[in-house]
Amino acid sequence: MTADRGRNRRTAALLISGGVLLALFLVSLTLGRYPVPLWDVVRILWHRFWALFGLSTPVVWTDAMEIAVISVRLPRVVMACLVGCSLSAAGATFQGVFRNPMASPDILGASSGAAFGAALAILLGCSARFVTIFAFLGAILTVALVFLISARAPGLRVVNLILAGIMVGSLFSAGTSYLKLVADPANQLPAITYWLLGSLSGTRLASILPAAIPMALGLVPLLLLRWRLNLLSLGDSEARALGVNTDLLRAVLILCATLVTAASISVSGVIGWVGLVIPHLSRKLVGSDNRALLPCSMLTGAAFLLLVDDVSRNLLATEIPIGILTAVIGAPFFIYLLLRKEKTL
């Protein structure tokens, strides 16, 4: 009876967050600094939808309206969903793997590595595409290094990983600080600083697919393995007693979570808090069973980042870096979750 109620509740929560995300997606497309009437947004999308099949509908809007909706707004809205979804999924996974509620996607130094890579690329005068590639490689290499170090160290595997993550992360942070010191203040330094604050501005249609592929490569295995993530949270000896190869499972989960984290950070810059707060929020909604927690985190994460990005591009005439907003919104929200009396599920 109670199990049934729990399941119904979880299904309802997933459906609701999915519905909220869909609604937000549509609403976001109508929000922007360039005035496009709601009805025209619908007609432009309708036009583009049929154009996919080679069909055409009459054009009654201006070119600028279509540019605003299709090449400025749509890529950003999609990217915000992808990044929010990925960071939250990675956060939930890391929290499960390390059995630590304070784990976030950058626990193994991924953001520090990505930041270093991006700063290096900016210093070398690379274009936006190479900045993304450098950031991605920086994140992956950092986590690989952390993994190698922890594998060689004696003692508890999980603790080693976290410690190595902190060490290597701070090493790369120092490197980034040095790069900022030697960067040219006229344009390189602000570019690095701006990248570190995190922003989805300038997202183009062409940049979505290259980001979505590694995200999908990581997210699909995470979704398939979410039941086994539950076993890991029992503790290593219990999980082994149930016949799980914990080291292998942990390695695969960390690899996938790192892949999605790296793909997100490399396109968005450093966006904190989402990966930490959203899994906690989702736990309040559906409980700590990862079978429901992971999909719920993905949906709410996407919706949350989409909402924050809407604020970031609409509040002022100029862009507000999204990393600042997630911290401003995320920290008080986290405090609220902490203070709220725990409801038993």
């Binding site: 600094r33 360039y34 400025v72 936006a128 900045v131 602000p190 701006y194 002022l316 005439a317 862009e319």
Partner: peptide, 20 residues
């Protein structure tokens, strides 16, 4: 009015503000 500046491909320049 302040439109914001660009740093490489990104920046605080809001592209929709620019369009409008």
């Amino acid at each position: 009015p302040e439109l914001g500046q660009l740093y490489g491909g990104k920046g605080e320049m809001n592209l929709e503000t620019l369009l409008s």
